[in-house]
Design a protein around this nucleic acid. Structure first.
Lengths: 204, 204
DNA sequence: AAATTAAATAAACAGTGTTCATTATATTTG
DNA sequence: CAAATATAATGAACACTGTTTATTTAATTT
């Protein structure tokens, strides 16, 4: 049945076309500027057609979120290669913030949006790319704690501490708060804070 | 001229009425559910009337943001009273996170929104309540660093480190990420991370 | 009472996500 | 090949959003 196959391929192709248009609009105009109607316009279909391929806008945003994680993982491959766990954490933190600062729209979708996952029950599956990242960080924390003899500390809490700090930093930068604290110094503030933070955790 | 005065008072009263309605809607339906038309409905005026008292929606959001800071300052009075600088920082951090978790809508307006202040030039004035808070934290950091003999560290960077961590934590909680990491454990995760963070900075 | 000033509004514009009955296009059957 | 059926695409509507402008209503001054 090469016919049914072709049908399915065509359906998948249009789905991909929609996602590709969505991605392009996201990169050009941000999440604010991304609308079903704009997607429909750029691929020259009617808005209603989109709903034959996606349940709603949230589903599209969710797919974009997963694209974002793929992109971020590429960003992090270098850091992942580092053998020393402590250094690896540092490199991961650097890469995380670098990605966040450079790709605000992707970052928001991945870490600030509750749109792509409304129901907490579904969250575990819907955010498994993010969860995988966190678990990897936690295991690296465990390794680092072992090598530095930092007992009496849960690796997941340490991971959360690291995550909170970089997440907070990226968001403060995104919303211009760092620009208010010190004008035209955002990048330097980020880098200094990051270094201080690592020093204070892995003292010395 | 008691007449012009009454006029002005009436104008101020309607302005206050609008803000009060806006506040009530914000608390009931969040920032998403807050619209000019809903404000107009609840005070029984037409939407266009709102624009005789406010330039645009952003100006209303900005006023709400300032209300939020007043509320937050009340939340922090106890912490401010603490004499010991290190303990004070700890109490401020606790109060900050508590406020953030309990008042998501206010918090978003104050720390996540770039709507109430679009132009960076105007930011300094438009976010002076936030800036005042940061400056106070920084000066407390200076005091704490002095008492703990932590030299070779800028107080503003330490303040940023603290702020990033609590800001990140609050946002991760708001967007359900902590719920994903460990279900029904958000409050405990926050509290543990916060404690670990203070320990690591002001080591033991 | 008439003229002027100030306040409030109706209506429109250009958007948004989403749904559904209708139309157009393929595919399958007689 | 033509008719019946299944699939895909859409136009139009609904209920919203922020904002502007010409018009109407109300209050004040002459």
């Amino acid at each position: 049945m090469g016919l049914a196959e072709r049908k399915e391929r065509e359906k998948a192709e249009l789905r991909e076309l929609i996602l590709d248009a969505a991605k392009r609009i996201l990169l050009k105009s941000g999440q604010e500027g991304l609308s079903i109607r704009k997607i429909a316009n750029t691929i020259e279909y009617s808005p209603a057609t989109i709903y034959l391929y996606f349940k709603d806008k949230d589903e599209i945003l969710h797919e974009l979120m997963e694209m974002g994680f793929t992109l971020m993982n590429k960003f992090m491959t270098k850091a992942y290669e580092e053998k020393d766990a402590v250094k690896r954490i540092y490199l991961i933190g650097k890469a995380y913030v670098e990605f966040g600062l450079e790709h605000k729209d992707w970052y928001d979708l991945m870490f600030n949006s509750d749109k792509p996952m409304k129901h907490i029950e579904k969250c575990m599956e819907d955010w498994d790319a993010g969860m995988a990242m966190f678990n990897y960080l936690a295991s690296t924390c465990k390794e680092a704690m072992l090598s530095l003899q930092m007992h009496a500390l849960e690796e997941r809490i340490l991971a959360l501490q690291l995550w909170s700090c970089v997440h907070g930093l990226v968001n403060l930068a995104h919303t211009e708060r760092l620009e208010i604290v010190e004008r035209n110094q955002t990048k330097e503030l980020v880098s200094k804070t990051l270094d201080t933070m690592f020093l204070s955790i892995f003292h010395k």
